[in-house]
């Protein structure tokens, strides 16, 4: 099971069901990562986020990332849910779940998926602060550095 979903609505209620669905024969490990909207950026208190994406292309890019993960690690299933639109602080923004026979593959593949998602998938965040200013988030050098640790053959 490999799939991607982009949605405006919260996904938290779906997690227990997904946790069951992702388990298949011989699955010995499930790693799930949930990203949450922080309440501040550089100590500036945040009101909410707005996320834009490129419908159709975003899904394609994340599917490509999952496919790569599948080629490099023996994983059985991987799913990604990413929210778009308005997100309040404390809300879940992204979910990555990976199932494999053993934990090492599940841990590594889920980190790889997040590192690539952050630097390759066409999403753009705009921050709205409590002082009523707003700004588009700049790409972080640290995210690009994180991605570089995966020295995978192309």
């Amino acid at each position: 099971m490999f799939w991607v979903k982009i949605q405006e609505s919260p996904f938290d209620a779906e997690i227990p069901v997904l946790d069951q669905q992702i388990q298949i024969n011989n699955c010995g490990a499930i790693v799930s990562f949930k990203g949450i909207v922080r309440g501040y950026d550089e100590q500036e208190p945040l009101s909410h986020l707005y996320l834009e994406h490129f419908p159709g292309v975003t899904e394609q890019e994340i599917e490509r990332i999952l496919q790569q993960a599948k080629e490099y690690w023996p994983i059985e299933s991987a799913i990604v849910i990413h929210r778009v639109g308005r997100l309040n602080i404390g809300e879940s923004i992204v979910l990555v779940m990976v199932a494999a026979s053993h934990r090492k593959a599940a841990f590594e593949a889920s980190q790889f998926i997040m590192d690539y998602l952050k630097t390759e998938a066409p999403f753009w965040k705009k921050e709205f602060f409590q002082n009523e200013t707003s700004r588009w988030v700049k790409a972080k050098e640290s995210d690009i550095e994180q991605k570089k640790r995966w020295q995978l053959p192309s």
Partner: peptide, 10 residues
């Protein structure tokens, strides 16, 4: 043609 600025998802 779509012109995409640096991405900031996740």
């Amino acid at each position: 043609v779509a012109i995409l600025p640096p991405v900031t998802g996740g």
